[in-house]
Design a protein around this nucleic acid. Structure first.
Lengths: 130, 130
DNA sequence: CCTTGCCTTGACGCTGACGACAAGGTTTAG
DNA sequence: CTAAACCTTGTCGTCAGCGTCAAGGCAAGG
């Protein structure tokens, strides 16, 4: 399978696949004419990468999962390094949820205050003589 | 007050203040020698900007608040345009909270699955002959 | 006079995951 | 013979909010 076909089947672009390769996540063979040749396993790898990136992982976070798949596992999750990343990411998300919750709180109270203290359509004469 | 003093009092850098000016958020006077001169009102403006950016607003989102302050209001929140932005941002945050919650769910179940199906320290011989 | 310490306007770097384009080689079909 | 449709490497652009020089002007103290 050439890069175009893989891109289509994985739902990405050829640019993306070359990008992943440049960052050491995918290792295609090369045919005589220099074309990249991928096997079915690489398709699974690419889909794993995409799934994790969609969830907010960075390329570096993805590496253990790829290695895990490459090691022969049917799932990229089951290796210790992957579990470590999963734990870390879960903690990060929890952290972010907390902060975002606080932000939400603040926005809400700010909005309440704003509505309570409504002032006229902004650029208007100072509240003195109507 | 010159740019250095304002930067210190606002807890930012001179670079940042010039950046805000370049984006039309701050309008300092100029002294004879070309130095930027700020008054106390600009300090409040800068603090408003900082507070909003810290909460995740973009510079464009901040504009109505600055205009509101500049219009003579003691709070940047009370003008209609500011309220619109607050509502929109609150909606965005809620949206983000939802998606992040879903991600958290997925990570959690992925982690559970991973722990249940634990495989040996990753790069190891295929599960066949121990 | 010289240094120190402000200030000025550029202009490039950074982070991440690509998009877009350039200039060219290869293979197949007509 | 040529056009179409693949492929290659390389380089620059994107978004945001600045950090970080670079090169120079201006004011005051010793």
């Amino acid at each position: 399978m050439l890069i175009g076909e893989l891109a289509e089947r994985a739902g990405t672009s050829t640019r993306t696949l070359r990008y992943y390769e440049a960052h050491g996540l995918v290792h295609p063979q090369r045919s005589a004419n220099g074309y990249r040749v991928y096997d079915e396993a690489e398709l699974r790898v690419v889909r794993e990468i995409r799934a994790l990136l969609d969830v907010g992982f960075g390329l570096d976070d993805v590496r253990p999962f790829v290695a895990c798949l490459r090691a022969g596992n049917t799932s990229g999750d089951v290796c210790p390094d992957s579990v470590l990343v999963l734990r870390r990411k879960l903690a990060e998300v929890d952290d972010y949820l907390d902060r975002l919750g606080a932000v939400r709180q603040q926005l809400h109270s700010q909005l309440t205050h704003a509505i309570a203290h409504r002032e006229e359509p902004c650029p208007r004469r100072r509240a003195s003589a109507p």
